[in-house]
């Protein structure tokens, strides 16, 4: 393997690791029926996006984007890109707030359906739908 290929692999390994993490989250969301597990999967997915953004902001040889206190910036110092940090910093807190909203929804679902499994919720829904149809058919029969 020549050095160009090796550089390419090392330079892109971060993306591939984040894709691995993202696909782990996606698999949990798609394959698991338990609603709490789905939320955990979404959180893993979310984390992979955060890490992708932060890794994009990195500049080789750069340092954290905090200037000296006297604001005399040395032009030779390289700073990493602060913009992805800003975006992700707010996204983390918004992420935990929306996660708590999802968990609150799960708690309400559990109280109404007595289960947090997707297929059992669908069973309950189907039973309710069928009984409603039956009732409306009865009502239509009485009218005619």
């Amino acid at each position: 393997m020549d050095s160009g290929t090796l550089d390419f692999i090392v330079g892109h390994l971060n993306y591939w690791l984040f894709i691995l993490l993202m696909m782990t989250g996606l698999y949990i969301v798609v394959a698991k029926g338990n609603l709490v597990k789905k939320i955990v999967g979404l959180n893993i997915f979310q984390t992979s996006v955060f890490m992708l953004y932060i890794s994009i902001g990195k500049v080789t040889g750069g340092t954290a984007p905090i200037f000296p206190l006297d604001m005399k910036v040395d032009p030779d110092v390289v700073y990493s890109n602060p913009l992805p940090h800003v975006l992700i910093l707010t996204a983390i807190v918004v992420g935990i707030a929306t996660t708590s909203l999802g968990l609150a929804l799960i708690i309400r679902i559990r109280e109404e359906y007595h289960t947090i499994e997707e297929d059992q919720i669908a069973e309950v829904e189907n039973a309710v739908l069928k009984s409603e149809q039956w009732a409306s058919e009865q009502a239509a029969g009485e009218h005619s």
């Binding site: 550089d7 330079g11 993306y15 890794s55 990195k58 080789t60 750069g62």
Partner: peptide
């Protein structure tokens, strides 16, 4: 995942200034 990895082939390397 394979589609995403294919998409990263054009991305800049880590830390590229």
């Amino acid at each position: 995942g394979a589609a995403l990895v294919y998409g990263t082939l054009d991305m800049p390397s880590f830390g590229q200034s």
